[in-house]
């Protein structure tokens, strides 16, 4: 029982990280229908910014979090401005290939600057509480609470603010939005800033939980978070959260029941099965065929 509860905690921690990265994916996809394949690498940049802020500048945790999020958001906006904007009217697949290219570029650029894995020092004192045999660490608490706050905040922005309204309108019809007097460029830049900022925050959260970071860490985690977004129904904020936790759960419990080498196998097979039965994800809305 305690063991299962302990695994549930692990699941919550891992799921929260996946969920926050998935939110960034879903944000950009939901607004632009663009799979930003560089998102995993923006997450990695977030973790490295966190490393710099912690190990080199010795900043306090909250400042580290803000620096990582804002720094990554700035890089995300720059990537949009330089690489994606010129391709806005090009075939969608050109933009996706560009995104892949940007991802490979970011990975290897970071690798060239920092060839070795880095160890991120502790940002918060790690306190553990014992609750009837169950060990809860402060890090786990911070990660879970932070992810919930981020989700609620994003949900609020998208549903209730005028900028969120403009984003939803952009997703529906990018050609008509300027006729309302809205600058499409500004809204897209904002979308990327938020999406990348979430990646940066997730990078910090990851570095708290798993302090060894390297330039390639974003590839696999990025793809998995993407899958989480798809499982939930890409474009749906609540779906991304749900998908993140589901993936976290599947991976945690697969690792419990089977040798760890089966983890990916189980996760991806489940994904395939799910997609066959719900091709648009759990909370995704099927697009009606227009004839």
């Amino acid at each position: 029982m305690v063991y299962i509860s302990q695994q549930l905690l692990n699941m919550l921690q891992l799921g929260s990280i996946y969920a926050v990265i998935a939110l960034g994916y879903t944000m950009v996809y939901g607004v632009l229908s663009l799979i930003n394949f560089a998102h995993g690498d923006l997450f990695m940049i977030g973790a490295f910014l966190c490393f710099i802020a912690t190990a080199k500048l010795h900043l306090p945790f909250v400042v580290v979090l803000v620096v990582a999020a804002i720094g990554t958001a700035a890089i995300g906006m720059a990537v949009e401005r330089l690489a994606y904007r010129p391709l806005r009217d090009a075939p969608k697949v050109s933009a996706i290939i560009t995104a892949l290219g940007v991802g490979v570029f970011i990975e290897n650029f970071t690798l060239a600057l920092s060839p070795y894995p880095r160890h991120v020092p502790e940002m918060l004192p790690n306190v553990s509480w014992n609750l009837g045999g169950l060990t809860v660490s402060s890090i786990q608490g911070v990660i879970v609470v932070l992810s919930v706050l981020l989700m609620v905040g994003l949900d609020f922005i998208v549903r209730k603010t005028r900028y969120g309204m403009a984003m939803r309108a952009l997703a529906w019809d990018i050609k008509t939005l300027p006729l309302m007097g809205v600058s499409v460029n500004a809204i897209i830049a904002l979308t990327f800033a938020i999406g990348a900022g979430f990646g940066g925050a997730a990078g910090t959260m990851y570095a708290m939980a798993f302090p060894v970071i390297d330039p390639y860490m974003g590839i696999m985690i990025g793809w998995k978070a993407f899958i989480a977004a798809v499982v939930g129904g890409i474009g749906s904020i609540r779906g991304a959260m749900l998908g993140g936790y589901i993936l976290g759960a599947v991976e945690t419990f697969a690792a419990v029941a089977l040798p760890s080498t089966y983890r990916d196998f189980i996760a991806f097979t489940l994904l395939l099965i799910l997609l066959i039965f719900r091709p648009n994800g759990i909370l995704g809305v099927p697009k009606t065929l227009k004839v």
């Binding site: 005028r162 050609k175 008509t176 007097g181």
Partner: peptide, 28 residues
């Protein structure tokens, strides 16, 4: 912003927004 408003062919309604939001957005 100069005062030209275009109601495009096919109406260009933002279907994912409510009627109220559509009207509010137009007053951006």
């Amino acid at each position: 912003s100069m005062g030209i408003t275009h109601v495009p062919e096919g109406r260009g309604i933002f279907g994912s927004l409510t009627v109220r939001e559509n009207l509010t957005l137009a007053a951006w």
